[in-house]
């Protein structure tokens, strides 16, 4: 995965970059399966490897497939990134160990969900019941965001000929 990301940084051909991003998504999906998140893996595989690749290729077809500037290492951004990364790694030292069953994240509401959800909703997949029932407001908000994004894309790229003459593209 790390190699793919480095390749994404270095490559200038945007076609290759989008393809590598797709491979990156697929690997992320595999990791999610290993980490027991089957629902998430499902979504990531369908979205990342499928739809976002198609959209990326569509954008490249409409714009350009080569990055103009040679990708040389820039020092100042690299410095900023290294400092931020160092601070984050320092922050991880206090976090719970990987897979620790006593981590605070597993002590709060998760046991309640795991115990109650199948009885109260009659649905064995806890992810589904939490998604739709316990966190219904959350999900409603997310669906509204998707709705808004869809409307935004239509507004930006749809042809609104019937509103009137399209604005002339100013040739700069």
């Amino acid at each position: 995965m790390a190699l793919t990301v480095i390749a994404i940084i270095r490559l200038r051909n945007l076609y290759a970059v989008v393809m590598l991003a797709s491979i990156f998504s697929l690997m992320a999906a595999a990791i999610f399966v290993i980490l027991d998140a089957v629902d998430v893996a499902f979504t990531e595989a369908a979205v990342g490897a499928g739809i976002s690749t198609v959209l990326g290729l569509g954008t490249i077809a409409l714009t350009t497939s080569e990055e103009k500037k040679p990708t040389r290492l820039k020092l100042f951004p690299l410095l900023v990134v290294l400092i931020t990364g160092g601070a984050l790694i320092y922050g991880t030292l206090d976090l719970a160990k990987y897979g620790d069953p006593n981590a605070p994240a597993h002590k709060h509401v998760a046991p309640t969900y795991l115990k109650e959800a199948p009885e109260k909703t009659g649905i064995p997949n806890v992810v589904t019941s939490v998604l739709a029932s316990y966190r219904g407001y959350d999900t409603l908000g997310e669906v509204t965001v998707i709705f808004t994004a869809g409307v935004g894309v239509i507004l930006l790229l749809g042809n609104w000929r019937f509103i009137g003459r399209r604005r002339e593209d100013n040739d700069v």
Binding site: L35, D36, A37, V38, Y98, G99, D100, P101, A105, H106, L114, A117, P118, P124, N125, V126, V127
Partner: peptide, 11 residues
């Protein structure tokens, strides 16, 4: 979210 020895949260 991973718990050592756990499985996917489908009861």
């Amino acid at each position: 979210g991973k718990v050592q020895g756990g499985t996917a949260p489908i009861i």
